[in-house]
Amino acid sequence: MSYQCDILIVDDEPIVGERLKAFIKKDGHRSETFVDPSAALKRLEEKDFDIVISDIRMGEIDGIQVMQKVFQKSRRTKVIMITGYATLELARESLTKGAFDFIAKPFKLKEIRRTIEKAVESLEKSEPRKTGEAVVG
C-alpha cells in the first residue's frame, strides 16, 4: 500500500512527460508535466510536490537549478534526475547536491517505478502524512 503522491515532471522533450504521466496515473499518483523549466519553477512556487522528476539538460535552466529551487521551498521533496547525457561526474554531482536518485536514459518504466516506490517509502518514513490524506494501493 502506498500514498497517492503529487509528482511534478519537467523535461523539454514532450514525449517523456506524456509517457511518464500515463504510467504514473496508472500507479495511482497525480502528476503535472512541464516542457518549459521556467513554468515548472513557477508552479513549484505555488505548490509543494512530493516528488519532482527532472531532466538535466534543458537549455537555460538545467535540472540542477530546478532541484536547488525545489529544496529552497521544501527539503522533504524527493528529486529524481533523469538525463540522456549521464556521466559519472554529473551523477555524483546530483547525488551530492541532494538528488534522491539519478537515472540515465534510456530507461525502462519499471526502473522509474522502483525509484518512485523507494521515494514514497522514504517520504513515509521521514514524515508520515496526516490522517485523511488519500491512500491508494
Binding site: 509517457r19 525502462k108 518504466l109
Partner: peptide
C-alpha cells in the same frame, strides 16, 4: 533513433 524520449516499455 527512438521516439520514446528514452522512456522504454518494460521487457
Amino acid at each position: 533513433l527512438a521516439d520514446d524520449g528514452g522512456v522504454q516499455d518494460d521487457d
